[in-house]
Amino acid sequence: PVYLSVKADNSMFIGNDPVTDETMITALNALTEGKKDTTIFFRADKTVDYETLMKVMDTLHQAGYLKIGLVG
């Protein structure tokens, strides 16, 4: 499974590897070998604001990742 996490300080990680807004999709493409039907499990600290969550989800959708599971 692929886990994308947003921490309380808005830092992002794919698994244990830090990513930025600019590198997130490139890292996901490498990890999933470009398979856009891969489910991305998205988790965020409860203090992360809604705007940040939606920005990340919008970026995922624009890149073609449509299977996003929200996890606690």
Score class of each variant (00 low, 15 high):
K67D: 09
T47V: 08
N16Y: 07
T20D: 09
S11W: 05
D9A: 08
K7C: 14
T52Y: 14
F42K: 00
I14D: 01
V19K: 01
V71A: 08
K36M: 08
V56F: 06
T52E: 04
G34F: 07
S11Y: 06
L53C: 10
M12P: 01
Y65N: 00
Q62V: 06
G15F: 07
P1W: 11
D21M: 15
G72L: 12
K55N: 07
M24Y: 06
L31H: 08
T23W: 03
A27R: 13
K35V: 07
N10F: 10
T23N: 12
T47G: 15
Y50Q: 12
Q62H: 09
V71S: 10
N29F: 08
V71F: 08
T38G: 04
I68A: 04
V19W: 02
M24D: 01
L28I: 12
K46D: 12
T47D: 15
K36G: 04
K36E: 04
D9V: 06
Q62W: 06
D58I: 12
L70Y: 11
D37P: 03
A27Y: 14
S5Q: 11
T26A: 14
I25Q: 02
D9C: 06
F13K: 05
T23M: 07
K55C: 05
T20K: 04
A30S: 09
P1A: 11
I25N: 02
V6G: 01
F42I: 15
D21N: 14
K55I: 06
V19D: 01
L70M: 12
A44Q: 04
E33N: 14
H61Q: 10
N16P: 08
F13S: 05
M54L: 11
T32N: 03
Y50M: 13
E51W: 12
M54K: 15
V56G: 01
K35S: 07
K35D: 13
K67M: 11
T32W: 03
E51I: 11
M24A: 02
D45G: 05
A30Q: 11
I25G: 02
M24R: 01
N29K: 06
E51P: 07
K46F: 09
T38F: 07
D58N: 14
D45R: 02
T26M: 11
S11I: 10
D21P: 15
T47R: 11
T20E: 05
T26Y: 10
T52R: 13
D58W: 12
Y65E: 00
P18D: 03
L53W: 08
D45E: 10
S5G: 03
A8T: 07
E22S: 10
T32M: 06
Y65K: 00
E33S: 12
D49A: 15
T20F: 05
T39H: 12
N10L: 14
D21K: 13
L4A: 02
L4G: 01
V6A: 02
L70E: 05
N29A: 07
G15Q: 07
L70P: 05
A27D: 04
V48C: 06
A27W: 10
D37R: 04
V71D: 09
I40Y: 00
D49F: 06
L60Q: 00
K55Q: 07
K46G: 08
I25R: 02
R43E: 08
M57T: 04
M12L: 11
A44G: 05
Y50L: 12
A44L: 10
D17M: 15
T59H: 09
T38M: 09
V19T: 05
R43D: 09
A8S: 12
V56C: 04
G34N: 09
I14N: 01
E51A: 13
I40V: 06
V6P: 01
R43C: 15
S5N: 10
K35I: 07
D58F: 12
I68V: 13
K46E: 13
L28S: 00
P1M: 09
Q62K: 14
L31K: 09
I25V: 10
N10A: 09
G15S: 03
A63M: 03
Y50C: 15
Y50N: 10
L4D: 00
K7F: 14
A44W: 15
V6S: 01
L28M: 05
I25H: 02
K36A: 05
A30G: 06
H61W: 11
K67T: 11
V2P: 03
K55W: 13
L66K: 10
V2Q: 03
V48L: 09
G64L: 02
D58G: 11
L60F: 03
Y50P: 12
H61S: 09
A44D: 02
N10I: 04
E51M: 12
L53V: 14
N29I: 10
Q62R: 14
A8Y: 09
G15D: 08
P1K: 10
F41T: 04
I25Y: 02
I68W: 04
F42T: 02
G72E: 13
L4I: 15
V19I: 09
A30L: 12
I40Q: 00
A27P: 01
M54A: 10
K55Y: 07
A44H: 14
K35W: 07
D37M: 07
I25M: 07
T20G: 04
A44Y: 14
D9E: 06
G64H: 02
D49S: 15
T26I: 10
K46I: 10
T23D: 10
A8C: 09
H61R: 15
A30H: 10
V56Q: 02
L60T: 01
P1H: 14
T38L: 08
M57D: 01
I14Y: 02
D37K: 05
L66M: 13
T47K: 11
F41Q: 05
T59L: 15
M24N: 00
E51V: 12
Y65P: 00
T52H: 10
A44S: 08
A27E: 07
N29T: 08
K67S: 11
V48P: 03
Y3A: 03
T59R: 14
V48G: 03
K46M: 10
E51F: 11
T26E: 14
T39G: 04
L66H: 14
F41Y: 13
T26N: 11
M54F: 09
G15V: 03
M54C: 11
G64R: 02
T26R: 09
L66N: 11
V6E: 00
D45N: 05
S11G: 05
V71N: 08
K36N: 05
M12E: 01
S5L: 12
M54H: 09
L28K: 00
A27C: 09
T38H: 06
A27L: 13
D37H: 07
A8K: 08
V2W: 03
A30C: 08
R43Y: 15
T47W: 11
Y3W: 12
L31I: 10
P18T: 05
V71Q: 09
A8I: 05
G64Q: 02
I40H: 00
L4C: 03
L31A: 12
K35H: 10
K35R: 13
M24T: 01
E22Q: 11
L4W: 02
P18V: 08
G72A: 11
D21T: 15
M57P: 00
T52G: 03
K35Q: 09
A8W: 11
V6Q: 02
L53D: 00
T32K: 02
L60C: 01
D49P: 15
Q62L: 11
L66G: 06
Y50A: 11
H61K: 14
D49Q: 12
T32F: 06
K67C: 11
K46S: 12
G72C: 13
Y65D: 00
A27K: 14
D17G: 05
Y3P: 01
H61L: 11
K55A: 08
Y50R: 12
S5I: 15
V71M: 10
A8N: 07
K36F: 08
V19C: 06
H61C: 09
G15M: 08
K7A: 09
L60G: 00
A27I: 14
L60W: 01
I68D: 01
T52I: 14
T32E: 01
F13P: 00
T32H: 03
